[in-house]
């Protein structure tokens, strides 16, 4: 089976069960997938568990490879989680932060060796922020730091990229720009990209595989138009919603109110 998937994943925080025996996926390679659901539904926990961060039971597979037994350093090379928190206000230049992200595990894989500075600049340029390379991180806006975080993540050339609300600090223009970049890079590298999203319209239009979670259980999984329906939205968010075609024939989610 291609792609990233997990089997019988359970995560507990103390006595509270956050994910209860979840099997989900495969998140397909070359496509962008989304995790949807209300706050506290276990989206971030699922992403972290897929990346091997925190304690979880169950198995995580990437294609034919079982990631479960890998060391953290090896696992994060293959399957990289990008937290929602922005990089801290550190007195470090953007370029240095890119180099540090490469060297974090001590070993720089052969496919990113060569001129590290060129590679870092190329990645910053992909996100349109090459001109920030010599600026200090503690001088940047929240959105700029979020873009640096994305460049750091993609610059590590993972096989799977797990992004926790990567659009949260971005303005409207940059939200769409980042989605375009992620779709293009995901397809070009044939990697798995999974992101936590709150914007249902971005999910329905710009992702290819969606999973809806509520209270640690899966409500629906599959192609966006099959998953994002008035019935699942009602069940998940307790809202009355419609999914209709706009004048250009694209699906659009409209919320009429609470259920």
């Amino acid at each position: 089976m291609d792609g990233l998937y997990c089997e019988h994943m359970t995560v507990r925080y103390g006595r509270r069960t956050v994910l209860d025996d979840i099997s989900v996926g495969p998140f397909p390679p070359g496509r962008v997938s989304a995790l949807l659901g209300p706050n506290g539904s276990g989206k971030s926990t699922l992403l972290r568990a897929l990346a091997g961060l925190g304690e979880a039971t169950g198995r995580v597979m990437l294609g034919a490879d079982d990631l479960t037994g890998l060391t953290l350093a090896r696992r994060t090379r293959r399957c990289l989680y990008l937290p929602q928190a922005l990089p801290a206000m550190v007195h470090l230049q953007v370029l240095e932060s890119m180099l540090a992200a490469q060297h974090a595990t001590g070993v720089v894989p052969s496919d990113v060796q060569g001129d590290e500075i060129d590679a870092a600049l190329h990645m910053l340029d992909v996100f349109g922020i090459a001109d920030l390379s010599m600026r200090y991180m503690d001088e940047l806006s929240g959105g700029q730091r979020q873009l640096v975080g994305l460049a750091q993540a993609l610059g590590r050339h993972p096989d799977a990229l797990l992004l926790d609300e990567p659009l949260s600090a971005l303005d409207l223009h940059h939200q769409f720009a980042v989605m375009d970049i992620l779709r293009r890079e995901t397809a070009a590298r044939q990697i798995v990209t999974v992101m936590v999203l709150h914007d249902l319209n971005i999910a329905v239009r710009m992702t290819d595989y969606d999973v809806i979670l509520r209270e640690g259980r899966i409500i629906a999984a599959g192609a966006p138009q099959a998953v994002i329906t008035p019935a699942t939205l009602g069940q998940t968010y307790d809202i009355v919603a419609r999914v209709e075609k706009c004048s250009r024939g694209l699906p659009h989610v409209m919320v009429d109110g609470l259920r």
Binding site: A73, L80, L82, H103
Partner: peptide
């Protein structure tokens, strides 16, 4: 040095980059 530098970017971020 590198691991400590990455740690300055935040604990969760360092962990996500493979730093124990």
């Amino acid at each position: 040095s590198w691991k400590l530098t990455v740690l300055r970017m935040g604990e969760e971020r360092a962990a996500s980059l493979g730093v124990d």
